[in-house]
Design a protein around this nucleic acid. Structure first.
Lengths: 190, 190
DNA sequence: AACGTAGTACTACAGATGGAGTGGTGTCAA
DNA sequence: TTGACACCACTCCATCTGTAGTACTACGTT
């Protein structure tokens, strides 16, 4: 088992691309090698087996989907009212859908996790943490709404992104924009 | 190309199960044959190639996810207020998540449609129709709320089902129940 | 400065699986 | 008798895993 951390990260990034392009079943050592443009057999040396590969990708993919520190800091600036909330959610949707392959890969992993208990455990933990962080962050921010608002927004926006990424002709960009606004507004009304 | 419609339907039903169990890449003629318990080569005789198989499944899967006539008729009975709305949405979520493999198969198809334009066209059409039917049905029903409520509910409930089916330990059944209630209530407040 | 060593990059291959597509034979009913 | 379909067998092909083994490079030692 090789330990070079940059190379491992490069392989995991390549695996994310492979997941998005080829689907979970297409995530093979060879495909990762090819995507990362490293010699055949390299992924074999870095992951014990496919299960291990899935689990490691599941553990790290979230790091690439979460906003960086600068974005987080910026999100805390300004008046924290409903308009600001909507603005932040627009940014969120755009940021996540911009890392197209990351989001699709995460969906593939979710589906694959119905077949791999170890992967399911990792994803459950990560996503649980993400939701809790969202709720906590929301509570600390001074933005309007309660924890239920935050969860409902999480639900609606996630599916909106699914819709946008998998079947882009269902909603126009204009409709997506309006749906984000509506989701924010209505989620706030208890 | 064989034409026996019962057999074709049985093969498509088997394909849905295969999709849910093995993923899109695992949807092969042989796997369908095995799942449908018919001789090897049968699926080959009923579908021109894998693309055709995907497209036909995409065209029919919705027929199995939609409520039957009796359910639809029952949904129109009684007072059509917010409580009734919530009740209907609970039934919807339970019905869809009960046909577990159908919903997972549809997710697999969505992801696969990023790679197969023909499938994407079929799915886009079906889902567009479904959303329009939902909105129209809602408008005709006398239930409270506007078309935006209906779409927002569609978004939130879809992801709630994803969450329940792919990572069942994220939300408890109790939380799911409460989230459905909250989604209905808040989506109604324009 | 020469040498040795460890860790990693890279190559090659053995062994095995699984699948597409097709041609042909059996069977049944009109 | 004929046609449609069920069923079976076989060929060809693509791909993957796991591992053994070689080459390279950096670094510490003497």
């Amino acid at each position: 088992m090789r330990r070079n951390p940059e190379r491992r990260q490069a392989l995991i990034d390549a695996a994310i691309e492979v997941l998005a392009k080829e689907g979970a079943r297409g995530l093979t050592f060879r495909a990762v090698d090819a995507e990362a443009a490293v010699p055949l057999g390299t992924a074999s040396n870095y992951f014990a087996n496919r299960d291990d590969l899935f689990t490691q990708v599941g553990g790290r993919i979230y790091e690439r989907l979460l906003p960086d520190e600068a974005t987080m800091a910026r999100s805390r600036e300004g008046v924290q009212d409903a308009n600001r909330y909507a603005e932040l959610m627009h940014e969120l949707v755009d940021r996540v859908s911009a890392f197209n392959s990351g989001y699709l890969a995460l969906l593939e992993l979710r589906l694959e996790s119905t077949r791999r208990p170890e992967l399911r455990a990792v994803l459950t933990k990560r996503i649980r943490e993400d939701i809790d962080a969202n709720v906590g962050h929301h509570a600390a921010s001074g933005l309007p709404g309660d924890s239920t608002s935050a969860v409902l927004l999480y639900l609606a926006l996630n599916w909106l992104i699914v819709e946008r990424l998998t079947l882009p002709d269902i909603f126009t960009e204009q409709e997506i924009h309006e749906l984000v606004d509506a989701a924010v507004q209505r989620s706030l009304n208890a």
